Simulated assay, not measured.
Amino acid sequence: MMSDEAGGGAAAEIAGGGAEQPGGGGATPEWLGRLPDDLKGDVNLTRYADVEALARGHLEARSKLGAPKLPTADTAIDNFEMFHAARPADAAAYEISVPDGYDAQFGDGFRALAHEIGLHPSQAKKIVDFNNSAVAGQLQAAQDAAKAEVDSFKTELTSKGGDYQAQLNSVTAMLEKHGLGDPDETMKAVEGIEAQLGASRTLKLLFGLAQGFGEPATPPADGGSGAPSPANLDSMTIDQVRAVRQEKMANPEWVKKANTAGTQENREYNNFIAAEARAVERARRG
């Protein structure tokens, strides 16, 4: 027959027990004698050696029952209601900033999602800040790459005697005349082409179209350093060539340099004179 000392400890621990009974024998704790008769014989209470052990056991059980059973990292989540305590009462409470150029609906959609899955506002903000930083970095990288591509195109065009600014002016004139009517819509169309072809190939396409539409390549209106190349001058009428030359000669500094042999301005002046002569000859023949 098993002795009283054989019971107690292990069984009590497996049952989630409290403090071990003094003496380990399973005798009724003395403090139970002060309870009403209907509680004295409760086997659950006999596990606690004293009132302090009972109180601690009760608090521990309450804490376990009150805490949500959060899923582990490898547990699928179908119902997010367990996180309701972390989320604000209204999704509008989330502070969501949208990167420049993005539709505000992006922020509204994330607010609804954050509220559904119970994100704390600080968690939502960290996610938004990370996204915005990543988007800004991608946009900056794309802008830097596009600028480098345009700079390379300018260098190549100039090395072949072309005038980037003058041809760009001809593209602007072409789009104003033959675009979609709405400048914003026209630029959206150009941006769409650029997204497919890249910056330099888009410029080549537009420069070619402008030449095909017969738009003269004119230098900047401020009399800057750009000037039409001989090929571009030959696409102009005699009046257009003279207008460009007169615009250049309205700048005293340009005229001074044009009178100095070997300067860029002197070469430009000679190109104007030669182009006027060719235009006169074309008009005579035509």
Rank of each mutant, 00 (worst) to 15 (best):
L233M: 13
P216D: 07
L206V: 02
K204G: 01
K204W: 00
G212N: 13
A227F: 08
L203P: 02
N232T: 04
P216T: 12
A210S: 09
S225K: 14
G208S: 14
L233P: 04
L205T: 13
L206G: 05
A227D: 02
D222F: 10
S225W: 12
G214F: 10
G214N: 07
G224F: 09
A231H: 04
F207R: 00
G208I: 08
S225Q: 14
L209K: 05
L205F: 08
G226F: 05
G223K: 02
L203Q: 09
T218S: 13
L205I: 06
G208C: 01
L205H: 09
G212L: 13
F207A: 01
L209Q: 11
L206C: 07
A210N: 08
A221M: 09
P230V: 00
K204N: 14
L205Y: 12
G223N: 11
P219T: 01
D234M: 08
L205D: 04
A217R: 05
A227I: 02
P216H: 12
N232M: 12
P219C: 09
F207V: 00
P216G: 12
G214P: 03
P216C: 13
D234N: 15
L233V: 07
P230H: 09
P216E: 05
L203I: 11
K204I: 01
F207N: 09
G214C: 06
Q211H: 14
G226A: 15
G223A: 05
T218Q: 15
A217F: 02
A221E: 15
P230C: 08
T218Y: 06
G226I: 01
L209P: 01
P216F: 11
D222N: 15
F207H: 07
L203C: 05
F207K: 04
Q211Y: 08
Q211C: 00
L203K: 02
L233G: 01
P220N: 15
L209G: 06
T218C: 05
L209T: 10
L233C: 11
A231R: 07
D222T: 12
D234P: 01
F213Q: 06
G223M: 06
A231S: 14
P228T: 06
F207T: 01
P220Y: 13
G208A: 10
G224S: 15
A217C: 13
G214R: 01
Q211F: 08
P230Q: 09
L203E: 05
E215T: 09
G224R: 12
L233R: 04
E215N: 00
A227P: 05
P219M: 10
G214K: 02
L206Q: 02
A231Y: 05
L205K: 08
F207W: 09
S225P: 02
P228F: 03
P219K: 11
L233I: 10
K204D: 14
G224E: 08
L206P: 02
A210R: 06
P230G: 04
L206F: 03
